[in-house]
Design a protein around this nucleic acid. Structure first.
Length: 423
RNA sequence: GGAGAGGUGGCAGAGUGGUCGAAUGCACCGGAUUCGAAAUCCGGCAUACGGGUCUCCCGUAUCGGGGGUUCGAAUCCCCCCCUCUCCGCCA
């Protein structure tokens, strides 16, 4: 959520910055609501003030045993208008709130302008895609060929967009998770947290998934939701909290499954593990002082990159353009890993600085010394999406005979296993 | 899931219809005292929103959340959430 003061101070400027990311702000509606709000709020508070002082006088009079009927008649006359004003004020505040809650974050000045992914800017490539002396398979052919990846059975158990992994492949998937957690906790200074996989609506509003993106979520029968990312439970740790400044920055890492309904993506990535209803992710989250958030974004992105580097996976770093950024983000880097089976780079991590956007929704603040509480800044990034990392390992480390060499750094997690082959 | 108890400021804890944004204690901050410290004394010490003559003043709201009764609600009524104790169930 953006600061409403911004809209009051310079509406056209905010509107144009929002337009740069493809959001049309209804400025006329805002101005009307705001003018109405001001008039009604002033009048309401006036009436409340009058009522309070008269009521107080009634109390005093009755305490002295005097007749208060004249006072009571006067305050009684306020009742109808006051009630009407309060009701209208509530309505307008709710409408303003709703309007505000649906407005995305402002892009930072150095975010490139653009409508969609085509305008994203490639910042750098790291690692060189391997030259194969045979035609590389994609992870589906590899996994099914090894009899370790089974989409048909998963579809029987659940539906399409689920996967069943067997034996050493299931273990490799687990090894990747362990590896990522170990690197982030031992080398990057993150604290590992274990969090609920089911959250309430307040938490989803806090991070920005609600109210606009309910269709992307799996909603349970008790009005709770399966998490679409660990970002939701982990970031909401600080909701309604005031953190002592000396505790910042806070760096947290969590491994969770993620559940996404993928509504509206019927034709996209239907093959393989790229786009699933359920996938695992290791998520990095940071809470920092405002002036440090951009440096923290660079740092956090680097932490995610480290995983790719240690795994020897070629990737590139993309700076997302205004039109391709997530709703809550002010600036986002995507890491895209090279997939030989698709002969292209695919997103494997997304690292964002939300500035105070989520913090304002969450009322997540910090206090420096004796100062007033101030909104902190939140960031997060995948470090990494485990399923897609597994795909990348399979495809990049495949051999001509259909087996897969295990990257060195993972072998300690696999009892020294060097090669993935059929059970 | 059942029965009971309870949710008040950073913490502890009073307050059961009126001058209560809320006693008192602890913690914290400033000052006095002291060579310095402890102790003691004095003062300060919530958040959000709105308005203004905008480093300050005024107003409004907030005692788990929402609704209601009333001129007036921390206090009474209803619904919900959470915590604790006991029982049941259970990894």
């Amino acid at each position: 959520m953006l600061d409403i003061q911004l809209f009051r101070k310079d509406l056209p400027a905010v509107a144009s910055r929002l337009a740069s990311r493809g959001f049309q702000l209804d400025t006329a509606r805002f101005e009307t609501l705001e003018a109405e709000r001001k008039a009604i709020q002033t009048r309401t508070q006036e009436l409340q003030s009058r009522r309070n002082s008269l009521s107080k006088q009634i109390g005093v009079a009755k305490g002295k045993g005097e007749d208060a009927s004249a006072l009571m008649a006067e305050v009684g006359g306020l009742g109808d208008e006051l009630k009407a004003m309060e009701t209208r004020l509530d309505g307008i505040q709710a409408e303003l709130q709703e309007l505000l809650a649906a407005i995305p974050n402002l892009p930072q000045p150095d975010v490139p302008l653009g409508d969609d992914a085509a305008a994203n800017v490639e910042l750098r490539r790291v690692g060189t895609p391997r030259q194969f002396d045979f035609t590389p398979k994609d992870h589906v052919d590899l996994g099914e060929g090894l009899d370790l990846l089974d989409f048909a059975t998963a579809a029987k158990i659940a539906s399409s967009r689920f996967v069943l992994m067997r034996g050493p492949l299931a273990r490799l998937h687990r090894a990747l998770t362990q590896f990522m957690l170990d690197v982030h906790t031992q080398e990057h200074g993150y604290e590992e947290v274990y969090v609920p996989y089911i959250v309430n609506a307040d938490s989803l509003r806090g991070t920005g998934q609600l109210p606009k993106f309910e269709a992307d979520l799996f909603k349970l029968t008790n009005d709770m939701y399966l998490i679409p990312t660990a970002e939701v439970p982990v970031t909401n740790i600080v909701r309604d909290e005031i953190i002592p400044a000396e505790n910042l920055p806070i760096r947290l890492v969590a491994h969770t499954p993620c559940f996404r309904s993928e509504a509206g993506s019927y034709g996209r990535d239907t093959r393989g593990m790229i786009r699933q209803h359920q996938f695992d992710k290791v998520e990095l989250v940071q809470f920092v002082r405002p002036e440090e958030s951009n440096a923290a974004l660079e740092e956090l992105t680097g932490h995610a990159e480290t995983i790719l580097q240690k795994l020897g996976l070629p990737y590139r770093v993309m700076l997302l353009c205004t039109g391709d950024m997530g709703f809550s983000s002010s600036k986002t880097y995507d890491l895209e890993v090279w997939l030989p089976g698709q002969n292209t780079y695919r997103e494997i991590s997304s690292c964002s600085n939300f500035e105070a956007f989520q913090a304002r929704r969450m009322q997540a603040r910090f206090r420096a010394d004796q100062g007033r509480p101030e909104l902190l800044h939140t960031l997060n990034g995948s470090g990494l999406a485990v399923g897609r990392t597994l795909v990348a390992v399979l495809e990049n480390y495949q051999n001509a005979d259909g087996s897969v060499t295990i990257p060195e750094v993972l072998r300690p997690y696999l009892g020294g296993m060097e090669r993935l082959s059929a059970v």
